[in-house]
Design a protein around this nucleic acid. Structure first.
Lengths: 113, 113
DNA sequence: TAAATATATTCAAATATTATTATATTTTTA
DNA sequence: TAAAAATATAATAATATTTGAATATATTTA
């Protein structure tokens, strides 16, 4: 199991609009840098920086084909995580019994003092 | 379904060592601020700051019991997300066919030029 | 009603993340 | 072999996040 630190690290790595799009794309298969240039509206160096960050955290890796770098997913949690984030949920969990709209209620734990 | 922006926002909110611990604790039930003080090694104002951030993003809410504020989970994705992050996975996904250890291979997409 | 308790708010300082710009590297092609 | 193509790296500037310190608010208790 991932440590707390590793879980946070992973979340931080994914929590970026460019990187999450890169990962979404890679769940569909191998892609090289210029493939990303086609749909990401940022500069090539910036794409490379995000790819290299993802690689440093072992989320993706690449192989070389001539002058292309072909990137692919490595961390197996990624597809599940991206899918879960897109899942439909009700607006909120059922509130605790003691939680009326008035925001008044009784504390369920041991009361101190 | 959450928009891309909402998904990122959610990930960023969770991707913090204190906040993820707060959320883990809240999956077990209602907790007030001084409950958190017992196991988080940070100042009370700092705890309140994180709680208020979580509330601003509609991840948690609270009700009032006298001078206690009793916090609880609101966003239903949280328990699933925290559970997924703790799930055991193999070290990596099976690599693409064309990816030997040598990092050499053939690009599977349309080759440009 | 004054003191104590529980918690929140505000602002500034410290730190971390991200984007930009310029340049470098490697491989292929003419 | 020089130029073009594909990509990476490094340094800096811009921006966002986090913490710390001081203080404020509301409720209960003595």
């Amino acid at each position: 199991m991932r440590s707390l630190g590793q879980r946070i690290e992973l979340l931080k790595v994914i929590a970026h609009p460019i990187r999450i799009q890169i990962l979404e794309e890679l769940t569909k298969g191998v892609k090289c840098v210029s493939d990303f240039e086609e749909f990401l509206e940022i500069s090539q160096p910036n794409i490379s920086q995000h790819l290299s960050l993802l690689r440093n955290f072992r989320v993706i890796d690449y192989y070389i084909d001539g002058r292309l770098r072909c990137y692919f997913l490595v961390d197996p949690i990624i597809p599940d995580l991206l899918e879960l984030l897109k899942k439909d949920y009700p607006d909120f969990l059922p509130g605790p019994e003691c939680c009326p709209i008035t925001k008044k209620g009784k504390y369920p734990g041991q009361r101190r003092r």
